[in-house]
Nucleic acid binder design. Structure first.
Length: 216
DNA sequence: GGCCAGGCGGCCC
DNA sequence: GGGCCGCATGGC
């Protein structure tokens, strides 16, 4: 399986090239973006980030002192703005006063204990803001690996993550690029209604094989 | 005009 | 553990 996962990575990298993730410049911006992008199109998040930047609110320390309504106004475009504004401020305060632990699992547990940070957001922060190798699993990851035939769509986050991580060396650069390439494939080919005929993975995908059988 | 987007928490059983 | 609901904008 290790070989398959590396092969899939190679094919995606050759097809799409480096993705230069995370799309953000500072650690704080990555953390803020990770929360804002929950169930939301990145284009809508970018507008929110620009608004926060204009108001000098694109840092955790600024957010701890920010007025919630001001934050709401900045992040309207990102959706769920009342929830996200409140949680952004609370998370900023919690992270500011947190003394980083040497133990990565302890750090992850801390993130998960915060309201507004679930497994995907926690792992995105760990991987993209801190270069700690946790593999990020999202709806795209599940869709692609279940279509490939390796997992079931019903499998939970931790189960999918354990399945992948047991076969890959814990390399944050690899995890970084791999997840970004998965997102790229999901947006361009492996969409809800997939475009298998032009997919670079079609020759090793069970779903693509089955679609071809129907045509023949 | 409906569907979708890089989820999460709070319920309920 | 599994399922349902509310949260909300903007692009297509």
């Amino acid at each position: 399986m290790t070989k398959h996962l590396h092969q899939i990575y190679q094919i995606l990298f050759e097809e799409f090239g480096p993705q230069y993730w995370w799309p953000g410049e500072t650690r704080d911006e990555i953390i803020i973006g990770a929360i804002l992008t929950q169930n939301t199109n990145w284009a809508n998040v970018e507008k929110a980030i620009n608004n926060l930047k204009e108001k000098q609110l694109l840092t955790l320390s600024a957010l701890t002192k920010a007025n919630q309504m001001t934050v709401v106004e900045c992040i309207k475009s990102a959706g769920y703005f009342n929830q996200k504004a409140e949680r952004l401020i609370l998370i900023s305060k919690a992270l500011q006063s947190y003394i980083p632990s040497r133990d990565k699992h302890e750090f992850r547990s801390f993130l998960l204990s915060l309201k507004g940070i679930g497994p995907e957001t926690a792992d995105s922060i760990l991987l993209y803001a801190y270069n700690i190798p946790f593999f990020v699993v999202d709806a795209y990851t599940k869709r692609i690996f279940s279509r490939l035939g390796y997992i079931l769509p019903s499998q939970r986050y931790s189960s999918v993550q354990q399945w992948i991580m047991q076969y890959l060396e814990p390399d944050s650069d690899l995890f970084n690029e791999y997840h970004a390439l998965i997102v790229k494939l999901a947006k361009t080919k492996c969409k809800k209604r997939p475009m298998c005929s032009s997919c670079p993975l079609k020759d090793l995908c069970r779903y693509a094989m089955n679609s071809v059988l129907w045509i023949l």
